[in-house]
Amino acid sequence: MNPRDRLPVSRWTLRFCLLGGGIAWTLHLVGAWAIAEFGILGGFAGVNTLILVLSAAMLLAAGAATLVSAHVRRAAGPENHEDARTVAFCGRFGIVTNAVFTVIIAAQTVPVFYFLDQ
């Protein structure tokens, strides 16, 4: 039997659980900065709106990664098996990590509201 078959979730689900929030945060930061830098200097009027839309999308992505992590944790089932324990660990790790990235994205979005009327 292929050892991979023992995992209760797919490899892609596990990867999203481990890295989803981090990637969403990266895209948010780079995207928001690029919009701010290029948009403001380029004279584009809708900078704030665009950043808010991007932030909402990335918040959703990081939130989805948190939910998927919770699913991974549940799918691991009773931890009487090393693979199940490992998957459960990944789930717990993903829940905390992705939740933290969700909070960071939200925190980084707050300053945009300060600049909304400018």
């Binding site: 701010a36 704030n48 950043i51 980084q108 300053p111």
Partner: peptide, 10 residues
């Protein structure tokens, strides 16, 4: 731009 700086400060 200050908006950009605010992301990095956060």
């Amino acid at each position: 731009p200050e908006l950009g700086l605010s992301f990095f400060a956060a």
